[in-house]
């Protein structure tokens, strides 16, 4: 049994379907015949979010993007950390991996590395992704695996009931709109500076960076879809208000602008400038800020394999020869 039954299970190669060959063929035919709709991606579990939560919009947009691509739910894995937004995988009819707070990205990278044929989507909140999990973002970007990362940014910690997050505006003009942030910053508002999440991710070198707003359903589905189609690490900054703890609906409706029509998505420096200017101008742009295709981690691994073994993988016995 030395020859490990390795490459056959779900690993680095194509996963084998569990059905008998005949059944698989049948399944394949039906697969082509069925055109899935948004409903096919709805799970039995009803979302637990507060009425009016922006996350409903993100969920629907994601389901729509999946349906447009007619992806087989068995080939989709949605990975999340902890937060209101982290509950999203439960509500999608697909595989889901709900991990600990802040670690959606590493888990998603493990999923993708072990089975590159899967469609892997990481989702989570601004706190999950840029406070506790902030250290993972640059590295996910560096690896450039084909993963779509949707950050549902409500500029607040929703699940823990309203504390400020790294993307909460400094000085908390928030006071006016937040019912409970005063708990954490009762005198002066938030003392810490606001992270410019979008600019950070562009500076990290991300190959796809876009922003979208949960109240703009069609546009959000389109942007998430572009992220799914992008071969590489795609970052989707999904602004998704929390009406319960920090209701930003009204101001955001006014401050959301599409990127200029002739926007050049190939210029990283301009993209950074745009993202930096927004803060002073008090606006958010929606659309794809930057996109460029780089070789993915999976692509590069093929080069490694070509050098490491060429045509035929080494046996464990051969590996042990070096110790003889």
């Amino acid at each position: 049994m030395a020859e490990v039954p390795a490459a056959d299970t779900a690993k680095t190669g194509a996963p084998e379907r569990a059905e008998e060959a005949g059944q698989a063929e049948q399944a394949n035919q039906t697969k082509q015949a069925t055109k899935r709709t948004l409903k096919d991606y709805r799970s039995e579990v009803k979302p637990t979010w507060c009425p009016g939560c922006g996350d409903f919009g993100v969920l629907a947009a994601l389901q729509r993007a999946l349906a447009e691509r007619n992806l087989d739910p068995r080939d989709v894995v949605i990975v999340s950390g902890i937060g209101c937004s982290g509950r999203l995988p439960e509500f999608v009819n697909a595989y889901g991996l709900h991990v600990v707070h802040g670690r959606a990205l590493p888990a998603a990278q493990g999923v993708k590395a072990a089975n590159p044929d899967l469609t892997v989507i990481a989702v989570g909140g601004d706190g999950d992704g840029f406070a506790i999990g902030g250290g993972h973002v640059p590295h996910a970007v560096r690896r450039n695996q084909d993963i779509t990362y949707i950050v549902m940014d409500n500029q607040v910690y929703g699940l823990t009931k309203g504390q400020p997050s790294p993307s909460t505006p400094t000085g908390m003009q928030a006071l006016r709109r937040s019912v409970s942030m005063p708990k954490m910053a009762p005198y002066e508002g938030v003392l810490e500076g606001q992270l410019n999440i979008l600019a950070m991710v562009i500076v990290y070198g991300c190959s796809f960076v876009a922003r979208t707003f949960s109240s703009q359903a069609t546009e959000m589905a389109k942007t998430i879809g572009l992220g799914l189609d992008h071969p590489g690490f795609a970052f989707v900054h999904a602004m998704s208000p929390c009406p319960t703890f920090y209701n930003t609906y009204d101001p955001w409706k006014e401050s959301f602008l599409p990127l200029p029509e002739d926007w050049d998505t190939g210029d990283r420096i301009k993209a950074i400038d745009k993202a930096m200017e927004e803060v002073g101008e008090g606006v958010f742009h929606s659309g794809v800020f930057f996109q460029e295709q780089y070789r993915t981690y999976t692509d590069k691994l093929q080069d490694v394999y070509a050098k490491a073994y060429g045509d035929e993988q080494a046996t464990i016995d051969a590996l042990m020869d070096q110790y003889a």
Binding site: A10, K11, V77, V100, A107, Q109, G110, V111, K112, A114
Partner: peptide, 15 residues
């Protein structure tokens, strides 16, 4: 932390 959660992700797929 990334090492163990990435390993969990990979194992989730059967590796």
């Amino acid at each position: 932390i990334a090492a163990i959660t990435a390993s969990i992700g990979a194992s989730f797929t059967g590796a």
